[in-house]
């Protein structure tokens, strides 16, 4: 009798160890991919240029993004009518402010920014913190082994409920994403490029240079986010304090 129990315990332990190890691998993959999109130890600054093509019409908006850890301050630069508008990210809470307002407005990261880009796309770089990853399958893209992960949101107030995420086994960077509804249907698709470099811990590491988000149904409607001049920079904590936005 006791031998059976021991065998069961051993087998269960082995099983859970394997699962735990697997979960660790998935999380490590996600964390590594986050680094190339801004989840670095120090603060970052970059300019974001968002070109939107919708129903044949094209618009361009520019932002200055300053991020440290889970906080981000996104300031609109162009067009002129939006100059001075600020989107503040405090962990998972988001605020919108413009100089004419007495107080900022709490908004959702899902709020449409422009075209296919949600506000959360501008500065959201912490998928490892916000999502539970699970490897769905392994694919080969351009001769490269790519993990296809299913990311499920840990909370209700995230930009997306589910993301299908392609991470390269070689570069550990995300190359493709499918943003899914709760029912699992894709409503947007994104591709990423990493032609920028930033200095991190004395080393130059790859950083995202472009994210193209396309409407899953109307493929001519898309938003292209370009990440321009990213650099490591310390930011004052007051930059991310909502109280500093009040008049």
């Amino acid at each position: 009798m006791s031998k059976n129990i021991v065998l069961k315990i051993l087998f269960s332990s082995f099983f859970f160890a394997v699962c735990f190890a697997q979960a660790q691998v998935e999380m490590e993959l996600l964390k590594a991919s986050d680094k190339a999109r801004g989840s670095l130890e120090k603060g970052l600054t970059w300019e974001s240029e968002v070109t939107t093509v919708e129903d044949g019409e094209s618009t361009i908006r520019k932002f200055k993004v300053k991020a440290t850890g889970v906080d981000a301050n996104v300031e609109a630069l162009e067009p002129a009518r939006n100059k001075g508008e600020i989107y503040l990210f405090n962990d998972r809470t988001m605020w919108f402010f413009k100089p004419s307002l007495k107080k900022p407005v709490a908004i959702s990261s899902r709020q449409k920014l422009t075209g296919q880009a949600a506000i959360g796309d501008i500065a959201s770089t912490h998928y490892a913190r916000d999502y539970n990853p699970k490897i769905e399958r392994i694919e080969k893209i351009n001769g490269e082994k790519v993990y296809v992960l299913m990311l499920k949101a840990k909370a209700n107030n995230l930009t997306y409920d589910k993301i299908r995420y392609w991470i390269s086994d070689v570069s550990k960077k995300a190359i493709k994403a499918e943003f899914l509804t709760l029912q699992g249907k894709p409503f947007k698709r994104a591709t990423l490029e990493y032609n920028n470099k930033v200095s991190s811990n004395g080393k130059m590491v790859d950083f995202v240079s472009k994210m193209e988000i396309v409407d899953a149904k109307f493929k001519n409607n898309k938003s292209i986010l370009r990440y321009i001049n990213p650099k490591m920079e310390e930011h004052n904590k007051t930059l991310f304090n909502i109280n500093n936005l009040k008049r």
Partner: peptide, 11 residues
């Protein structure tokens, strides 16, 4: 969202 498709706010 205003008519330009931008997020706007007023007091």
């Amino acid at each position: 969202m205003n008519l330009y498709g931008d997020l706007n706010a007023v007091d």
